[in-house]
Structure formats: C-alpha cells, structure tokens
C-alpha cells in the first residue's frame, strides 16, 4: 500500500470525529489520541519487526516478548486495583501461558522457530491472556462482593480461604473464558479474524491462511484457560486479610 493510500485512511477518522461532534459524544480528544497512538505504535512496531527479522537474534526476540508481557500485565492490573502484588501475579500467569504455548508450538514443530512466527503468534496469545486476566479479576471482584454471605458462612464454619471461595472462583474462571469460547464458535461465520484477513490481503492462499487461523483459535482457548486458572490460584488469597477475613473491597471499574 502506498503512503498516499495510507493517508486516505484518515478519512475514517474524520467520519468518526464528525459523528462525535454532531452527536456531542465528547470523544474528539480520545479519538485524536487514539489515532495518533495507533499510527505511531504500529509504524514503530513495523520498523522494529523489520529490524528483528533481519537480525535473527534470539536475545532480541526474548526482549520484545518481555516488553509485550510487561505492557499486557500493567494493563490487566488496572482491573485488580487494591489487590496487593497483583501485577506480579498477572505477569507470572501470562508468562507461564506464553511459555507453555510456545513450548508446544515449537516442540511439536507446529511453527518454525523464526521471529516472523514467534512474535506475531506470541503477541496474539499474550493479548488474549491480558483480556482474560482482566475479565477474571473483574468477575472475581463481583463474585466476592455478591457471594459475601456464602463466603463468610464457610469461613465461620472453619473453611480455608480456598474452600470459602471455591465456588466463586469456579464461576469467575468460567465467565472469563466464555468470550474466547463463543468466539471459537462463530469464527469465520460472523467475523473473519484479523490475522487471516491480513494474510489473504498480503497474497497468501486462503486455505493456508485458515490453517494458521485454526492454530490461533485453538491456542487462544487453551491460553485463556491456562491464564485464568493460574491467575486464580495465584490471586485468590488476595481477597482475604491475613486473619482470613474478607477484604473490604470497594467497587471499581
């Protein structure tokens, strides 16, 4: 795509802006920031990737994965405000997921061990893990709030923290995985996923593109499950004080 053609895509931004002004949505500032950020971030990533692909240095690959995990963890940790040390627990859960996914993909020779496979697939896995981690924490907060009576009853009968939140945990893990599983059911029928679309536009054979998409969809499901379970096991104790009482947690977005 030429630079001129790329500039024309700003038309879409203008449409959004006009709607915002016309309907008094007050989103102009956010749209402007979003436009600039997405353009700069993506262009930057393009050049970084180009550089890394040429260098083929494993250290650089690891470095970029660390950056991805860090950004994803900080973002997901916003959903866990007020929980001590939640950032590290999220980082650990996402890292474990990424290691497992890459271990399986590379170990079974499903993908080649080159940056152009490892980085985009990791990016998608980590991104999905981030969304799942945020959903889980949000859901867990809601569950702990609404099941307060049940949790305290179990505590009053001498339950451990784990026993007291077991059911709330189960419901939260389930809720955090539902979007991924629903996505799996409708993929291809409702939406053509970005990666596949990109490959097709770039000239790949659609059947080949679909194979990779299947890989991604399956990997997403298990990465959602793994992230959710690990994060839950790491974080359920955070809802309690050291005296095994429920934390007084305020409702937050």
């Amino acid at each position: 795509m030429s630079i001129l053609a790329l500039s024309f895509t700003l038309l879409f931004v203008m449409i959004t802006m006009l709607i915002s002004v016309w309907q008094k949505l007050g989103l102009e500032r956010d749209i402007a920031i979003g436009t600039v950020r997405s353009a700069v971030q993506l262009l930057l990533v393009g050049y970084v990737l180009q550089f890394i692909f040429n260098m083929r240095n494993p250290v650089l690959i690891v470095l970029i994965l660390i950056v991805m995990i860090t950004v994803a963890s900080i973002n997901a940790a916003k959903r866990g405000k007020g929980l001590a040390g939640v950032l590290w627990k999220i980082a650990l859960a996402i890292t474990a997921t990424e290691l497992l996914m890459m271990g399986l993909l590379l170990g079974f020779g499903i993908i080649e061990a080159t940056p152009q496979y490892i980085i985009p697939i990791s990016g998608m896995t980590i991104g999905n893990a981030m969304v799942v981690a945020g959903l889980l924490l949000n859901q867990m907060r809601r569950e702990v709030e609404s099941s307060r009576g049940e949790i305290e009853l179990l505590l009053s009968l001498g339950a451990t923290a784990r026993q007291a939140v077991q059911d709330a945990m189960k419901r939260s893990v389930k809720a955090s995985m539902i979007p991924t599983i629903d996505g799996m059911k409708t993929v291809g029928l409702v939406q053509l996923p970005g990666m596949m679309t990109g490959m097709i536009i770039a000239g790949a054979n659609p059947v080949e593109a679909v194979r990779y998409q299947i890989l991604i969809v399956f990997a997403f499901t298990s990465s959602a499950a793994v992230t959710s379970i690990i994060l839950n096991l790491l974080s359920y104790r955070l809802w309690f004080t050291k005296d095994l009482q429920l934390q007084p947690i305020k409702e937050k977005g």
């Binding site: 009576g149 305290e152 009853l153 505590l155 009053s156 001498g158 005296d243 095994l244």
Partner: peptide, 16 residues
C-alpha cells in the same frame, strides 16, 4: 483463624 472459628462459631441473623 480457622482453628478459632471451629471453637467460636457465629450463626448469622440472615441464614445463607
């Protein structure tokens, strides 16, 4: 706290 609660048990007004 678990050991304590097994000895001193609270029965809430609102049964759960």
């Amino acid at each position: 706290p678990r050991e304590w609660r097994m000895k001193v048990c609270y029965v809430a007004q609102q049964p759960v």
